[in-house]
Design a protein around this nucleic acid. Structure first.
Length: 743
DNA sequence: TCTCTCACTTC
DNA sequence: TGAAGTGAGAG
């Protein structure tokens, strides 16, 4: 074989390959077979199943594939491949047998979430990122044991308000600030089989929340404004950026896909748990929340009133000082203070030092607004007067027959399947209003791109969606909820695509990708052969474009990137198999600046962008905040918008062949209608209001209101306390004086 | 409101 | 043992 990288593909040799292997795939493969080190991909090693991403049918392709498969199976670098490389039979790519699944998701630690939610959950965000507490954990069931799934979560704005904590309650303080770039967090174990996911609790505790917009843990891919299909940014990272004093709603997604690259054209099943809603804060506002965190978060043990934590030590120190003083006092006066007064002093001190708990029995989230500030007061008063019944219905996350869903489903259906691109915002608003209180957890929405043609989408798609909704309704699950499945017209969304002329808020125009969610990948993802198997190979051409054209990466070539990745502790293989954007992500997390690709990757990144936008932009509540979509002004609460998934799912053996043609019509510029459709909200509105419940067993200890007896003790205690304070501050030398100074 | 440091914790 | 996750508290 005497091929070179620049040899054309022999006529008649068809190629069916992964979308990330566009026209340069032949070069790439041939280079590998010939033992050339592809200049654009210096240290590529195919992961064990990487060959699955390549299929080169035809007389020429077979030997190429043989070698690729051989390399893949042995894990040897492409660079070591030569003509003499060991050949293995071409691995056949058998289409996976699709077994119907019916995923159900159960929120773990629901009771804990409920406790927080009743009081208005706050999540601290810091510059360096803070974890969520309670941690977001779910248990999955109903998955196809053998199929592979990717599990993700993201956090979307729950409404369009900014909040303030005033008079022990959260109140609307105005319109929301411009939204931060969105991200999705892919569970680091993804992809894994359904069996694996179901065998354990899926936890997202490593996701961090930050208010640092220049967060380097995220990596942003920028698309040129004139890109045919996608514009804006798309980022990867381990932290999600939130606005302080804004309300957010985590979402959980199940995607049946064995490769992250397939995300864009796979079905997303989305699960919402209203009780996981929270307000992002830089410092805790509500003492009750602080106390709940302290009481439940192991890392905060040091602040607990009991145990050996700091608080206890402080008390012990205080008591010790008191004893010292007491002994001196005894010596000097010949009398002794009763231990009760010591205890009273302690109580007093404890009361003063422990988080004050307002006895105002109203909590917070119930005050959380509907999107309209002006209606907030009304909503507030309503909720205040009848919170109990409301609450009971609200928090029933584990039943599948929530009234809310029943209410919400028709709205979702109607909204999703009846609305035309034109006039979408209005439709959305109306529909949302039609189901103003459909907010009963968890809402599950599935947006699919599978096999729905343009025609199919209109009515058959609708029926499918409706059928699924009905199906979901009928689910008898107790601890899990059947998905409220909405089949969206993903292909249409792709065709419509993102909005070229979106009016982003000033300063965000260059950062936000279609107001979309960037893809958010866990670093450990890099070490996974599976998820990025085909991506690894697929990124070759991209890298070629980058370093070859040397216009896309500033100051770094792919070699440097690979080295950097390796230097990060990644194994040679995993580092080498890092997809380009992930390498960038790694670098980005190191603070290395990467410049946007620009239009260098018109094709593959269309997919990437599709992944981001499809999976989140259209689904994000941010959509409703979009000026073009301005749903927010009409809707009390938009909690969810369906994903728009770009491409019909082709057979895995001919992904590109199938995807490419379908992509072609989709690559046209989008208009406002398209945008509106893409952002069509499913209107799974969930009542954010949580009854204000003043009872807090945890807090009651620190919110003691003094009884008369206690009050009398309080005086003595105050005196003692003052003495102690003097003692501690070095004034104990004059006990008589300090005593006389006490009341 | 936000940021930083601190002492404490878990892992 | 040390890295990383906590809220408190000062600024």
């Amino acid at each position: 074989m005497s091929l070179s990288m620049r040899d054309p593909v022999i006529p008649g040799t068809s190629m069916a390959y992964h979308p990330f292997l566009p026209h340069r795939a032949p070069d790439f493969a041939m280079s590998a077979v010939l033992g050339h080190q592809p200049s654009f991909f210096p240290a590529l090693t195919l992961p064990p199943n990487g060959a699955a991403a390549l299929s080169l049918p035809g007389a020429l392709a077979k030997p190429i594939m043989d070698q690729l498969v051989g390399a893949a199976e042995t894990g040897i670098p492409f660079s070591s491949l030569g003509p003499q490389a060991h050949l293995r039979p071409l691995k056949t790519m058998e289409p996976e047998e699709e077994v119907e699944d019916d995923p159900k998701v159960h929120l773990e630690a629901k009771e804990l979430w409920d406790q927080f939610h009743k009081r208005g959950t706050e999540m601290v965000i810091t510059k360096s990122g803070r974890r969520m507490f309670p941690p977001f954990k779910v248990r999955c069931s109903g998955l196809d044991k053998k199929a592979k799934y990717i599990l993700l979560m993201d956090i979307i704005a729950a409404d369009d308000c900014r909040y303030k904590f005033h008079n022990s309650r959260w109140m609307v303080a105005g319109k929301a600030d411009p939204e931060m770039p969105k991200r999705m967090y892919i569970h680091p174990d993804s992809p894994a089989t359904g069996e694996q996911w179901m065998s354990k609790v899926v936890t997202f505790h490593k996701l961090k929340l930050t208010n640092n917009i220049s967060d380097k843990h995220g990596f942003t891919l920028a698309f040129p404004s004139d890109h045919a299909t996608w514009q804006g940014n798309y980022s990867l990272g381990t932290q999600t950026i939130l606005n302080s004093m804004h309300k957010y709603q985590p979402r959980f997604h199940i995607v049946r896909a064995n490769d992250i690259l397939k995300l864009p054209y796979s079905t997303f099943r989305t699960y919402l748990f209203p009780e996981t809603e929270f307000i992002a804060v830089t410092a805790y506002q509500n003492d009750k929340i602080t106390q709940l965190k302290i009481d439940n978060n192991p890392f905060a043990k040091g602040f607990r009133d009991t145990g050996n934590g700091r608080r206890e030590k402080r008390k012990q120190l205080t008591l010790q000082s008191m004893r010292v003083f007491d002994e001196r006092h005894k010596k000097e006066t010949g009398t002794s203070d009763e231990s009760s007064s010591e205890q009273a002093a302690f109580n007093c001190f404890a009361q003063a030092s422990s988080p004050a708990v307002s006895t105002v029995g109203t909590s917070n989230l119930k005050d959380l607004c509907p999107s309209e500030v002006e209606s907030d007061a009304e909503a507030e008063s309503k909720e205040e007067h009848g919170p109990e019944a409301c609450d009971a219905a609200k928090i029933s996350t584990t039943t599948s027959e929530e009234p809310g869903r029943d209410k919400g489903s028709p709205a979702v259906k109607a909204h999703l399947f009846s609305a035309e691109p034109v006039g979408r915002p209005r439709d959305s608003a109306r529909l949302d209003k039609a189901s103003p209180d459909s907010r009963h957890s968890p809402a599950t929405i599935s947006s699919s791109t599978r096999g729905l043609g343009a025609e199919e989408r209109r009515s058959p798609g609708r029926e499918v969606g409706a059928a699924k909704v009905e199906e979901a309704r009928a689910l008898p699950a107790k601890d899990a909820f059947g998905p409220l499945t909405v089949q969206t017209d993903a292909a249409a969304h792709l065709a419509q695509g993102p909005l070229p002329g979106l009016g982003f808020a000033p300063g965000l125009a260059g950062q936000q990708f279609f107001n979309g969610h960037p893809l958010f990948l866990h670093p450990s993802q890099f070490a996974m052969g599976g998820a990025f198997s085909s991506m690894a190979a697929g990124m070759g051409p991209l890298l070629a474009t980058v370093s070859g054209a040397s216009t896309g990466v500033s100051g770094l070539d792919s070699t440097a990137m690979a080295s950097a990745a390796a230097a990060q502790g990644l194994s040679g293989a995993s580092a080498a198999t890092l997809p380009f954007h992930l390498q960038q992500h790694v670098l980005a997390s190191q603070g290395l600046a990467m410049s946007p690709f620009g239009s260098l990757f018109p094709y593959p990144y269309t997919y990437m962008a599709a992944a981001a936008a499809a999976s989140s932009a259209a689904a994000s509540s941010s959509v409703h905040r979009h000026p073009f979509l301005s749903l927010n002004s009409m809707r009390p609460r938009l909690r969810y918008s369906p994903y728009s998934i770009p491409v019909p799912v082709p057979d895995s053996s001919s992904l590109l062949a199938t995807a490419l043609p379908s992509m072609a019509p989709a690559s046209g510029p989008l208009d406002g209608k398209a945008a509106a459709l893409a952002g069509s909200p499913a209107s799974v509105t969930v009542d954010s209001g949580s009854e204000l419940n003043s009872r807090s067993s945890t807090l009651s200890s620190s919110s003691v209101s003094l009884s008369p007896k206690l009050c009398s003790e309080k005086e003595a205690a105050t005196s003692e306390l003052q003495n102690i304070q003097r003692l501690v501050s070095g004034l104990e030398a004059k006990p008589d004086r300090s005593r006389s100074g006490s009341p």
